[in-house]
Design a protein around this nucleic acid. Structure first.
Lengths: 180, 180
DNA sequence: GACAACTATATCAGAGTGATATATTATATG
DNA sequence: CATATAATATATCACTCTGATATAGTTGTC
């Protein structure tokens, strides 16, 4: 298959919920997908153009006198999204700069490494708090999201929470090990 | 700072252990860094050329009649590596295609989603086994690696193991939730 | 009405990925 | 001993993805 633009699927997924502009897509990514999916304007806009050319999406409205262009998903787009959902997901390569740094830090002063780990821990704690907050919000009001979708979002949040807790535990364990 | 080539640091780190060719660097990445760091030939070779031009590395030997070019780290390279180790690590953007797919799978048949999760679980189980195997190997023989370095490698492996176990637990929990 | 904050699109250089091409050197197998 | 095949080694390409920057209209507020 060779190198596939994955933003297409994120965009199709978002448009399948409701027609959106490039800016809306970015906002949704930052708000809802944040933590497990990243999108840039520099990729969204060219991808939208390409998808429009390929008939995966269509222009729904060019609102009044505004610059805003709203895109909607087409039938072909829905088929593409559905096909992707059925595909097996191949794991993507990882790049953790933190772990790379840690690996090459064995000659650094212990205090320095412990500090690194404490900062890393703090970061994950902050993330964890964010996820717990999002979980609370999700349980309160189910205004626009369907019960089904809310259940899936909760599962994904749980994933973030469980992983976050594991990383924090590892930090504590490793700091303790270094202090001995 | 704007967009920084991070492969430089991986390469400097590897060369700080022993002079290597591009091919050696790739092998080391696949064997030792695998699981938290990815490198490609398509990035290693141009980066090596750039680093040579910048004086971060030097050609140590062009072995006999072979094609192999061995690079070593220079004093300037060591300084660059050291400076990076002292820098704060900014978290890098994530892209989990699996979680993206899961989020948009709420209208898929339950059986289908459970299958997705089972495959994902299997993948992480395999990874976990690999880490446990690596941990065993690390405890047995400490031939070339220093005691200090071995300790850091163990910590990184522990990280992979703890995270892997957490993901597997999440899979089980989520599958159970879906079956209810 | 000035100033900040937000909405909106576009473009660019450079980082990173995976595929492919090419050639040499070990190693095995019949 | 020939020859297949696996491993070693470098190079290049198209494409994806990132983060920065440019530009301009709209909304809010003090």
């Amino acid at each position: 298959m060779a190198l596939k633009n994955k933003s297409i699927y994120a965009i199709l997924g978002i448009l399948s919920l409701s027609p959106s502009s490039g800016y809306d897509i970015k906002k949704y990514s930052d708000k809802v997908l944040s933590g497990f999916w990243n999108e840039n304007f520099g990729h969204i806009y060219p991808t939208l153009k390409m998808m429009l050319k390929d008939g995966l999406i269509e222009i729904v409205s060019t609102e009044k006198n505004q610059k805003k262009i709203k895109y909607g998903i087409t039938e072909k787009g829905r088929q593409e999204l559905e096909a992707w959902l059925l595909e097996e997901t191949i794991p993507q390569p990882m790049r953790s700069e933190f772990l790379l740094k840690l690996l090459f830090s064995s000659s650094q002063p212990k205090e320095r490494v412990i500090n690194m780990l404490k900062n890393y821990r703090k970061l994950h704690e902050k993330n964890l708090d964010k996820y717990l907050e999002m979980q609370k919000n999700l349980e309160q009001d189910n205004q626009d999201i369907s019960k089904e979708r809310a259940c899936f979002m909760k599962a994904i949040l749980r994933r973030g929470i469980i992983s976050g807790e594991a990383v924090i535990r590892w930090c504590d364990e490793t700091i303790e090990e270094l202090q001995r």
